[in-house]
């Protein structure tokens, strides 16, 4: 069973293709003291899909606000786009979150 939780009113999905935005969930389980006081998650629109993911890069902890979306490639079996951290260049599959190469 999935634990669906409401996102507070006023939060909207990103409209610009490939530009990472944030949603403040304000959910206790998503908040993290100093690093994420609003329980923010990141979201990006790409190829008619919305992808939602952690607001900070797991590798360097920098917010993913300037992360770049790359098209699917053989690493993601041509099925899912990829996300690259603008700061440390770590790259992840937006299909399953796995760290690539």
């Amino acid at each position: 069973s999935l634990n669906w939780c409401p996102i507070p009113a006023g939060q909207t999905l990103p409209t610009t293709e490939g530009k990472v935005g944030f949603l403040d969930t304000n959910l206790p389980t998503m908040k993290n003291g100093n690093t994420n006081p609003t329980g923010a998650v990141a979201a990006v629109r790409y190829d008619d899909n919305i992808y939602c993911f952690a607001s900070a890069c797991p590798s360097c902890q920098v917010p993913l606000s300037k992360a770049k979306i790359l098209p699917a490639n053989e690493e993601t079996k041509q099925r899912a786009p990829r996300l690259t951290c603008d700061f440390c260049k770590a790259t992840y599959s937006l299909g399953d979150g796995s760290k690539l190469q």
């Binding site: 634990n3 939780c5 996102i7 969930t25 959910l27 952690a54 796995s98």
Partner: peptide, 21 residues
Amino acid sequence: SGPLKLYKLGEQKGKLLIVVD
């Protein structure tokens, strides 16, 4: 470092929903 955590989003009656652990 581990994988990037992904979240599932939904919409019901114009309200955004998210699946959390």
